[in-house]
Computed example of a mutant assay.
Amino acid sequence: MRSGMSRRVAAACAAGLVTAAAAGCGTADGGDGGPQGSDASVSVVTGVYPLQWLAERVGGEHVDVTNLTEPGAEPHDLELSPRQVGAVAEADVVLHISGLQPAVDEAVAQQAPDTGLDAADLVELRAAEEGEGHEHGDEDGHEEHGEHEEHEEHDHDHGGTDPHVWLDPERMAAIADGLAERLAEADAADADAFRANAERVSAELDDLDSAYRDGLAQCASRDLVTSHTAFGYLADRYDLTQVGISGVDPDSEPSPARMAEVARLVEEHDVTTIFTETLASPAIAETIAEETGATTAVLDPLEGITDRSPGDDYPSVMTANLEALRMALSCD
């Protein structure tokens, strides 16, 4: 493992942040997500919570994992501190998803081009505009929705892909395998442990996938109305139709026309529940629910774990999401 605070400080200051880092470049411990000292063989930096969970499970005791997004923070809006830039530069592996966090993408490109591991290189990312609309014979509404989402994607620069890949357990298992191989390259002595851990994680994810398939097989409704379009992978995998009020970025503002379109769909298709989430304001979803007589419930996009999350780790939140879906969609 690369070590030495002097190299980390040099990397942070070399990132053009000397002034802002005046205090941070003189300290050897404390906040901002820099990796702390440990006996682990490999240092791993992750961009968002689900990747942190995966790295901890695959790496086990042999890795020291640092997540760049603080609990409760919106990952799309992440800005890195000088110390975090240094952590990226010093890590043996930087696991991220291109297009999700521009600040992380930039730091990897500039500071860790050889150690970055992009999940988009391990699994195929879906196009953001696919599956976000609905095909219920309303061609004009469908076209309007597509134009709106294209506008949102352009504004928030997700590169035309949906980065919320962790909401598909099968893709998460593939990322686990790819991460195990990269960790094995960084620490050959523990390669067998990494691969064995990845197999265990994959088995757990397979069980989760089976629970979703069984739990969502017979439902009265398959319309998944969400505050923003974070659930495209989940919808695709389990034959649901995602209808997002906002685009892939939760901070994007839907147009009045888009809100009216969603309200019309809710009424026409007897949608009973509009899903909000833990890290974004529920106000718009609540407005549509009040207008249509629907209720709201939380469907967590798992961008972070807080005291408002319906679980304390990736599997428990995914399980809570499944129960919320089954209730909202009236599944047998």
Rank of each mutant, 00 (worst) to 15 (best):
G4C: 05
R7W: 06
V9N: 10
A10T: 09
G16W: 10
G30H: 05
G33Y: 07
P35K: 08
Q36H: 12
G37E: 13
S38H: 08
V44F: 13
L54S: 09
E56W: 03
G60P: 00
D64G: 06
T66D: 12
T66N: 10
T66Y: 06
T69C: 12
P71S: 07
H76C: 04
Q84T: 05
A87P: 08
E90T: 13
V93M: 09
S98D: 15
S98C: 13
P102T: 12
V104N: 06
Q110P: 04
Q111N: 12
A119S: 14
D121Q: 15
G133P: 11
G133S: 14
E139G: 08
E139N: 09
E143Q: 14
H145M: 13
H145P: 00
H151F: 11
H151N: 07
H156Q: 09
H158F: 14
G159D: 07
D162S: 15
V165L: 15
V165I: 14
V165E: 08
R171D: 11
A173F: 02
A173C: 03
A174M: 12
A184V: 00
F194H: 02
N197D: 04
A198T: 02
E199R: 04
E204I: 00
L208S: 03
D209T: 02
S210F: 01
Y212N: 09
D214G: 13
L216S: 07
S221T: 08
S221Q: 06
R222P: 00
A230E: 05
Q242Y: 11
G247K: 00
P250G: 05
E253T: 09
E253N: 04
P254T: 03
R264S: 13
L265Q: 06
L265W: 03
I274A: 01
P282V: 05
A283T: 13
A283F: 01
T287E: 12
T287A: 06
E291V: 01
T295D: 11
G304A: 14
R308A: 15
D312Q: 15
Y314N: 08
N321T: 07
E323Q: 15
E323G: 07
E323P: 04
E323H: 14
M327C: 08
A328W: 05
A328V: 06
C331R: 08
